[in-house]
Amino acid sequence: MRLMSGHSSGRIRISVPARLAYRDAVGALVKAVCVQLEETRQARPGTGDEVLSAFNEAFNNLALHAYRGGETGAADIEVELLPGQIVLRLMDRGQGFDPTRVTPPDLASDEVSEGGYGLFIMRSFMSEVAYQRGDGERANVLTLVRNLEQDRPGEQRNGHDDVQKD
């Protein structure tokens, strides 16, 4: 996935144990791809930090919840570049964890919450967040899509969420 100054495309797939200890190794790859997009001016500065923040929250959920109560399985991660987009897919074959069902924090409240920020961070930094629950044959898939022209969160929102259920 060598990124040149024009539109880039390609896909990398990595499989690691679904443990927090493996998150930063995969995150480094995600960040490196984004930094190349910044350097080739296909993405604005800050994209790498934002996409990495979203990825970290997604991987945390997978590592902490997907195989809870059972033997730790694999986390399969795909990083795909499409014209104008970077797509992250986090897959597991455990009981899964649907972050789109988590109640968002109330940021208008004077009372600051200790938790519940993970999905909010994902939704803020990515253009689309979708979860597809698997079955015996297909994996659970959390898909994070970042449109490369996306504005800085809080300045303008152009994303949406889509939960797919079979």
Binding site: G46, S53, P105, L107, S109, D110, V112, Y117, F120, G154
Partner: peptide
């Protein structure tokens, strides 16, 4: 600074 500053801004932690 940097990424933590962006998270603080996003989550409006200056409320607290």
């Amino acid at each position: 600074t940097a990424q933590p500053k962006e998270i603080f801004r996003l989550l409006r932690l200056d409320r607290a």
